[in-house]
Each structure stands twice: as C-alpha cells, then as structure tokens.
Amino acid sequence: MRIYVMTLFPDIFNAYIGESIMKRAIDKGILEVKLYNIRDFSDNKHKKVDDYPFGGGAGMVMTPQPIFSAYEHILKENSLDNPKVIYLSPKGRIFNQKMSKEFSIEGDIILLCGHYEGIDQRVIDEIITDEISIGDYVLTGGELPALVLIDSICRLIPGVLNRNESFEDETFENNLLEYPQYTRPREFKGIEVPKVLISGNHKKVDEWRLEKSKVLTRERRPDLWNKYIQKSDKK
C-alpha cells in the first residue's frame, strides 16, 4: 500500500513512521509513505499558502493553487489514476474501524492535512473523495489525524502484524470492546490472575473472554452494545 501525504509540516511524520510496527511494514515493503510539503508547490515568491477569507471572518484559509499543484504532481510522479483523496477535517465523517478496513484494501491513498481555518472549498469540490474526522473536537492541523489514519489502516494490511499481534480479537471487532488482559506474574500485590486463564481449557477461556467483552461493552458503550444485539438477533 502507498500513502501520499500533503502537509505543511512533513517533519511531524518522520519520527512516528520510523518506529515500531509502521517502520517494520515499510522495511518489509508492505507500506510506503511519501511526504509532500504543500509550501514547495506555491507559486507565490514568498511561498505563501494562505490568505484572508472572502466575506470576512477570523483566521486564514489555505489557498487552492499550492494544494492543486501538489496533487497534480503526486498523480504524475506516481502514475496514479483517481486515487482516494482524504481530507482530514472536523466536518468529516467520524473515523471508525469499519472505515479503516475499507481503506486498508486500497492500493493508493492521498491524505490532505489542512491548517488555519481550513482549505478553499474548491479543493474539496474538485479533488477530495472523503472528508474524515477523528472526533468531535478541533485540532491545530490535520497531521495528527493523518497519523491516526495511517496507523489504523496499515496494521490491517496482510503481513504487517504477526500472529502475536493479530487484530481479530481487538476492541471494536464485532461491535464489542476487548476483554481484560493479564500477564506474568500470576499474583501481584495480592491480586491473582483469574483462574480460568491459567486452566488450559481453551473453550472456557474463550467463553470467559466473550462474557467480559459483553459486560464491558454494555457498561461503557451502550451504542456498540445495541449494534451487537441487533446483529446477533439477525443471525
């Protein structure tokens, strides 16, 4: 999978994608992340990328020319034809695990990180295929949301995670929160690991985990619990 990021701050990405699972995926050739500084594509002699909004109002708006030029350069340099172009925006659909799975099967994705008061609407109308938000709050820019998407998407690509890091039992799979996890030692500060987990009875362990997932989901995320119940009733 190839992810192309249009941003004003490419250095923000370097440290994160150079560590842990993401670095391993890149080293294996499973994932490629290419960064493009929008400012490099500005026709303005001062490399300006923002201006005052028409109609007045506070703040600045990212101008369309540098973004369009960066986009066209990415298409040409990488021989892309109609790729997904995701704009990270608080006005977008809320990102979730289902969307992450859908994006993970794409061959090429372009991420656009906005700043200031946002980007010129003509960019959204002409090149954006998806507007995505990571939550109902406002951030300084789109770089952190872009990293969230990259992390969430790449770990679903076959070959990125090994067997011990499988995502199949994780939170949000099947609309249930993940069950509690324990490791050594068996007893810590007088608190023992639940006996079923060290019983060797895999059927009992699976039953315990499912029940704990149900309890957690019912208590903490009634919205997910309702989805789980509805899905179960249809079977």
Rank of each mutant, 00 (worst) to 15 (best):
L216T: 02
D206I: 01
D11Q: 14
L75T: 07
R220C: 06
D27A: 05
E219M: 09
L144V: 15
I30F: 13
K235Q: 12
L139T: 14
E165W: 04
H202F: 06
T183I: 03
L177P: 08
H115N: 08
N82P: 10
V215N: 05
F103L: 15
V33H: 09
P185F: 07
T63N: 01
F188N: 07
I21Q: 07
D27E: 14
I74G: 12
I124R: 08
T183G: 01
E168G: 00
S166L: 04
M99V: 11
I21L: 14
S152W: 08
Y36V: 12
D151R: 10
P66M: 12
R220I: 11
P53E: 14
E211V: 03
I21K: 04
V215D: 06
L144R: 00
D120A: 09
S133H: 11
K212F: 09
I30C: 07
D206P: 02
R155C: 11
E117Q: 13
N82V: 12
P10A: 12
E192F: 03
Q65Y: 02
S232A: 14
R220P: 08
I157E: 05
G135I: 11
V61A: 08
M62L: 15
E131I: 09
D130P: 04
W225I: 05
R220N: 13
D27Q: 13
S213R: 15
I110Y: 00
E173N: 07
P90A: 12
R93S: 15
I105Y: 12
K48R: 13
Y4P: 08
T140V: 13
L111W: 01
E219D: 13
N37I: 06
G107Q: 15
G56H: 10
K47S: 05
I86P: 12
L111A: 10
V148E: 02
Q97W: 04
Q121P: 03
V193H: 01
P64I: 09
N164P: 02
K28R: 11
I105S: 13
Y179R: 10
R39G: 08
N174S: 06
R163Q: 08
D50W: 06
P53S: 14
E143H: 06
R155S: 07
F172C: 00
F54Q: 11
Q230V: 00
A146F: 03
K204P: 04
K195M: 02
Y116V: 06
S133L: 14
F13K: 06
K76F: 08
H73V: 05
T7S: 14
N175H: 14
E170V: 03
V33I: 14
E173S: 02
N78D: 13
I67R: 07
F103V: 02
E187K: 08
M6C: 15
